[in-house]
Simulated assay, not measured.
Amino acid sequence: MKVAREEIVTAARELFREKGYAGASMQDLAERVGLKKASLYMRFANKEALVPEVMDLLLRDTLSEAGAGGAGGAWYPAYAALVRAIADTLSDRKRCVGLHLAYGVGDETPVAKQAVRTFFQSLRHRMSDILARAMPSITAEILAADALVRLEGATLLIAVFDEVTPMERAVEAVLSEARAAARRKGSR
């Protein structure tokens, strides 16, 4: 059976989301995609080798949902789209693969640990770059980090209590803080 690499990575993402790093196994993944475990090992040396590709897929999906939001253009629509894309991904899936992996990998899995770090740094940098169009860079960096903490924290209430209103409030608070910071810069 021919299984595309992207299909394996997508299945691994869902498996990590469901079971975390420690709970997911290569056997689970092989069964999910319809491969023999040996065939899976021919493509990925171990479970850790999947993590960078899973995190890259997650980042691409999130940024794609947010739209371009790249260089130039109005900062607020780009930032709002990115914040909502992150929140939607977290709300729809009821947990964050990145956090699941952040708590599941450590010094014994340096490749996985670096992939998780790169994922969160990429989101934070993208948010900060957009915010820096409207405010000092240091303020943008702080707001971006705080926004990620709020959005990821709201995921806890979705996962535990199936409550989405905290995520909605987190999004509104994050966007409100950004607008206020931009106004403060404009009034100086």
Score class of each variant (00 low, 15 high):
Lys2Gly: 05
Lys2Ile: 14
Ala4Asp: 11
Glu7Ser: 13
Ile8His: 03
Thr10Phe: 04
Thr10Pro: 00
Thr10His: 09
Ala11Trp: 00
Arg13Ile: 03
Leu15Ser: 13
Leu15Val: 08
Glu18Met: 05
Gly20Cys: 10
Ala30Phe: 14
Val33Asp: 04
Val33Tyr: 03
Val33Glu: 03
Leu35Gly: 11
Ser39Tyr: 10
Met42Thr: 10
Phe44Met: 08
Ala45Gln: 15
Ala45Gly: 10
Ala45Arg: 15
Asn46Ser: 14
Asn46Thr: 09
Leu50Val: 14
Val51Lys: 00
Glu53Phe: 01
Val54Glu: 01
Met55Pro: 02
Met55Arg: 01
Leu57Trp: 05
Leu58Arg: 01
Leu59Met: 07
Asp61Ile: 03
Thr62Pro: 11
Leu63Asp: 06
Ser64Phe: 04
Ala66Lys: 02
Gly67Trp: 08
Ala68Trp: 04
Gly69Glu: 07
Gly69His: 04
Gly69Ser: 09
Gly70Arg: 12
Ala71Asp: 13
Ala74Pro: 07
Trp75Gln: 11
Tyr76Ser: 15
Pro77Asn: 14
Ala78Asp: 15
Ala78His: 05
Tyr79Ser: 03
Ala80His: 07
Val83His: 01
Arg84Leu: 05
Arg84Asp: 06
Thr89Val: 06
Lys94Glu: 08
Lys94Asn: 10
Arg95Asp: 12
Cys96Met: 10
Val97Thr: 14
Gly98Trp: 01
Gly98Arg: 00
His100Ile: 10
Tyr103Met: 12
Tyr103Phe: 14
Gly106Trp: 03
Gly106Met: 04
Glu108Tyr: 15
Glu108Asn: 09
Thr109Pro: 06
Pro110His: 11
Ala112Phe: 00
Ala112Asp: 01
Gln114Thr: 09
Arg117Leu: 07
Phe120Leu: 08
Arg124Ile: 09
His125Gln: 15
Asp129Ile: 06
Ile130Gly: 00
Ile130Cys: 03
Leu131Asn: 05
Ala132Asp: 12
Arg133Gly: 04
Met135Ile: 09
Pro136Ser: 10
Pro136Tyr: 09
Ser137Glu: 15
Ser137Phe: 03
Ile138Asp: 15
Glu141Leu: 12
Leu143Asn: 02
Leu143Thr: 06
Ala144Pro: 10
Ala145Arg: 02
Ala145Thr: 09
Val149Trp: 05
Val149Pro: 01
Leu151Thr: 02
Glu152Phe: 03
Gly153Val: 08
Thr155Leu: 11
Leu157Asp: 02
Leu157Tyr: 02
Ile158Thr: 08
Ile158Cys: 06
Ala159Pro: 01
Thr165Val: 13
Pro166Gln: 03
Arg169Asp: 10
Arg169Gly: 12
Arg169Cys: 06
Ala170Trp: 00
Ala170Val: 06
Glu172Gly: 11
Val174Ala: 10
Val174Ser: 05
Leu175Val: 13
Ala178Cys: 14
Arg179Phe: 08
Ala182Leu: 11
Gly186Tyr: 05
Ser187Ala: 10
